[in-house]
Design a protein around this nucleic acid. Sequence first.
DNA 1: TTAATTAGTGTGGTATTTACACTAAAAATG
DNA 2: CATTTTTAGTGTAAATACCACACTAATTAA
Lengths: 229, 229
Amino acid sequence: MLNSYSTEDKVLLAVDCIIFGFDEGGLKILLIKRDFEPERGKWSLMGGFLKKEEVLDDAAIRVLNTYTGFNDIYMEQLYTYSEIDRDPVERTISVAYYALINVENHNAELIQNYHAKWFSVSEVPKLIFDHDKMLAHAIRRLRYRTSMRPVGFELLPEKFKMSQLLKLYESILDKEIDKRNFISKINSLDILIKLDEKDMTSSRKGSYLYTFDKEKYDAKLLNNFAVNF
Amino acid sequence: MLNSYSTEDKVLLAVDCIIFGFDEGGLKILLIKRDFEPERGKWSLMGGFLKKEEVLDDAAIRVLNTYTGFNDIYMEQLYTYSEIDRDPVERTISVAYYALINVENHNAELIQNYHAKWFSVSEVPKLIFDHDKMLAHAIRRLRYRTSMRPVGFELLPEKFKMSQLLKLYESILDKEIDKRNFISKINSLDILIKLDEKDMTSSRKGSYLYTFDKEKYDAKLLNNFAVNF
DNA sequence: TTAATTAGTGTGGTATTTACACTAAAAATG
DNA sequence: CATTTTTAGTGTAAATACCACACTAATTAA
């Protein structure tokens, strides 16, 4: 079994990371301002090249860590982009990954010390190369996924108010959802635990906090089942 | 804007094609017996390397054409596989594509003259490299897709019996479906045209033939909506 | 004490899904 | 010619899921 592939073309393979977060302001995405050529000074997804002895999943993790310091973020592969001139410097194929993370757990200082910044998805600037296309694709996937199965565990803090969860769904799906129907639907899924604790910051009355019941939540994810709001 | 990427590693990029078909025997997949190293004589998906001046979608079409002579097959990208030793000869990343096609339209002679052969998905032999994994992944995707939106147009002959369509769904989802509920659901989708013609080959009574109403069918595909059997 | 704000809760109508079994037509057989 | 065999074709009722919709409770601020 020899090296019989020697005449084949080799190409550069990159990964690009699309990181979604959520806070009071709604759905966010993490971008960097490039301090290197090409396209220095423009906004971009976090990207880097695959190394010879590395699998794509690891490359995505490494790239994300380089720009943000984040560790242990599970990313899912989205799509592989191969337009001939997508990178003006040299033919590069790029594999996009995306993840949902909790903004609070990945604090702002960290991001300041690195190069990344959160943007509202509704206010994303023009991005380099085909990154706009990647982002649009990722949002479509996130919406689709959200309408099919519960999300939220990854995006919300440990303890959260029902109204935050509602707002998360409204942000992702970009539409209003009836509060009562939402609550009864979520409750019927049986994936939340209602705590005795109340959050008093935003209202006179205070609102109960919830956490996800991790086991039940994961079980629901497995038998991929539909949730329609 | 210079070539600033010169120190980065380059890799071989391949495409592999997973082609589904359907006939009386159920759901089928197209494989080749390799007549070249490595793994000569073993069964495998149809694969080939990406060329420098080619996009992935085109590479997949070219590869499929090489092994089968088929033209104009629309393939959808599935996933990109990058395990370090997935190809024992040299580090190769592979982008898998899949398609659904109509077996009858792509006749057996053609396949004989080339290298490919149809296998029942339930009787697929051991495949080389990580092709088993790719196939399993493709089947999962096909099932998921089928439970979300109508399939069939690509897999059935121009004119078909309701019982064939039912069998197609049963083959893909690998479960029994109630005939009456299936028919009323399909009818409610309003994507079939009932012909005056009957097929007399398999029954005394004969059964009506149908065709897909291409326009309505495509419209349904666009607003990706759920169908549960 | 009054006003303002957010939390929290329930019902009824409609549409969808599921479970379920018999008759009709034609040909093949004896 | 009567009987058997095979597949096609059809409907209903019960259960569940979905959707639209509005008021009260609690608390604090003014």
